[in-house]
């Protein structure tokens, strides 16, 4: 565990909590893509099945459980509790276009052809593109609430910190996991456009809106 990974994990946790807090406080999930949140819940449940087979550390186990529980509660809020506020007509990204190719790729390119390993690989590939329905929704409506953009920034910061963590681990531990690194870089690239808008607009006190 290095400092980049720790701050990355905490940034990830912060993103998840910002989103939950926003939905709970405003009693509304407007502007949030239920599809992206469903994909993240799927990512965590398929990746952390090793909770039953491997023990790494109390920290690791605790964070895994928190991520799974929070992502499931978020999905419950969007599709059940605050369903009336969910903008389903703007959340039109076709999820099967992500899940099917990602599933196929997980079968073809993995470290080991075993069920748990394939599910882990699937979750890594899926996480790298799971934010697309959310970004698609923002591009469709042309704007995002400021709190939603803080959520996305914390999520993007987590990804960027994980890349620094991999550079660190490569140099100081001789460790690298190519699948995680390639998927992680793809994921981070998806946030670049958003980072630009966040820095030029949101940090200047403006709402995140796209030019018409």
């Amino acid at each position: 565990m290095n400092v980049f990974r720790l701050i990355g994990d905490l940034s990830h946790l912060l993103a998840i909590l910002i989103l939950l807090w926003k939905i709970w406080k405003t009693r509304s999930c407007s502007g949030i893509s239920g599809k992206s949140q469903f994909l993240f819940a799927l990512v965590f449940t398929t990746r952390y099945l090793d909770l039953f087979t491997n023990f790494i550390s109390p920290y690791n186990t605790f964070m895994k459980i928190v991520y799974i529980v929070c992502s499931c509660v978020t999905v419950y809020f969007i599709y059940v509790k605050f369903k009336a506020t969910y903008d389903s007509n703007h959340d039109t990204f076709r999820v099967e276009f992500l899940v099917v190719p990602v599933g196929g790729l997980a079968f073809l390119v993995n470290h080991d052809f075993t069920p748990l390993e394939i599910l882990w690989t699937f979750s890594i590939y899926l996480e790298s593109v799971a934010i697309l329905p959310q970004l698609f929704m923002i591009s469709k409506t042309g704007e995002a609430e400021t709190i939603t953009s803080h959520y996305l920034f914390a999520l993007g910061a987590y990804r960027a910190l994980y890349i620094v963590n991999w550079v660190y681990r490569y140099y100081f531990e001789g460790f690298f996991d190519l699948i995680a690194i390639v998927a992680g870089c793809v994921q981070t690239i998806l946030y670049c456009d958003f980072f630009y808008l966040y820095i030029t607009k949101v940090l200047q006190g403006k709402k995140l809106s796209l030019p018409a």
């Binding site: 790494i56 690791n60 895994k64 991520y67 882990w120 531990e173 460790f175 996991d177």
Partner: peptide
């Protein structure tokens, strides 16, 4: 090293 450290990240 690679095998044993695999998947220790979140």
């Amino acid at each position: 090293k690679f095998e044993e450290a695999l998947h220790d990240e979140l």
